[in-house]
Design a binder for these strands. Structure first.
Lengths: 125, 125
DNA sequence: GCAGCTGTACGAGTTGAGTCGAACTTAGCA
DNA sequence: TGCTAAGTTCGACTCAACTCGTACAGCTGC
C-alpha cells in the first residue's frame, strides 16, 4: 500500500446540490436484502440506536456521541458501520462528526412495517 | 451419563386434550424477543423454511423432509431447532417425524407485519 | 427380532461477529 | 503552530454460530 502523497485525492466530502455532504457508501434501495437488514437489527445495541433515532430525533441527523452509549469509540464505529452497510442508516460527514439517520423511505418501501416493530421494541421485555 | 433403564421415563409424547402431541420446548408468547426472532430470520436457509411453511403449507404441519433441502440431516436439525428456540416455529413429534409449523398467531400478536415480510421475501433479489 | 427410516446428540473444524486498546487522521480553534 | 476532540483503522482476543460426520435412539413394518 502506498505511503506518501499517493493516498489519492482523499475524496474530499463535496457538498451535494442539496448542500448536504455526500453520504458514505451504502447499498442502494434495490440492493437492500431482508436477511442482511434483519441481521443488522438482531443486536440489542443496534436496535437501541435505530429506535432512538426513530423516536427521539427530529429532522436532523445525529452524531454518535448524541446517543450516550457507554462503549469504546471503536465499538461504536463497528456498529454504526454495520447499520450503514446493511442499509438501515445513512451517514454523512459534517466536519469531525459523522451523523446518522434512518433510511425511513427506503425501508418502508422495501420492508413495510419493519420500522414500526423497531420503534415498538423495548430493551427488556 | 446413565446407561441402563435410568434413562428416565423417556418423556413419552403424551397426546394433549386436543389429540395433538405435546409441542417441544419453546418460549411462550410473552418470552418472544424481537432481537432473537430477527436473528433467527437473518439466515437465508431459515427464511426459506419459514416462507415455504407460510406459503405452501395448508393446515397441517410438515416434517423436515418435506422441504427438500439439500443439506445433511444434522444441519437441518440445527436450523429447525434454532427456529423453534427463537419462537418462530412449533414442533411436534408424530411417531418418527418431527413436524413444524409457524406460530402465526403468536408472532402476529407480538410483531405484527413481520411474517408478511418473510412471505414477500425472495431468495435472490 | 431386526432392518430401515427419521431425526437427535455430540464433537470438531471453521468462520464470522462482537469487544476493545492503541495509534492514526482530520477539522476547528486558540 | 499546535492542541483537542470525533471518529477511523488495525490487530488481537473471545465467543457464538454454521457445517458436517459419526454414532445413537425410537418407531414401524416385515
Amino acid at each position: 500500500m502506498p505511503t506518501s502523497a499517493a493516498a489519492a485525492p482523499a475524496v474530499k466530502v463535496l457538498p451535494e446540490p442539496s448542500g448536504l455532504p455526500e453520504p458514505l457508501p451504502e447499498p442502494s434501495r434495490d440492493e437492500l436484502r431482508l436477511e442482511t437488514v434483519l441481521g443488522a437489527l438482531s443486536d440489542p445495541l443496534r436496535l437501541t440506536i435505530v429506535r432512538k433515532l426513530l423516536l427521539e430525533s427530529e429532522d436532523y441527523d445525529h452524531s454518535c456521541g448524541w446517543f450516550g452509549l457507554d462503549r469504546p469509540k471503536s465499538s461504536l464505529t463497528h456498529h454504526f458501520k454495520a447499520l450503514r452497510e446493511a442499509g438501515v442508516t445513512r451517514q454523512r460527514q459534517y466536519g469531525l462528526e459523522r451523523r446518522s439517520h434512518v433510511r425511513v423511505e427506503d425501508l418502508d418501501a422495501r420492508f413495510p412495517g419493519l420500522l414500526a416493530l423497531v420503534a415498538a421494541w423495548s430493551p427488556q421485555g
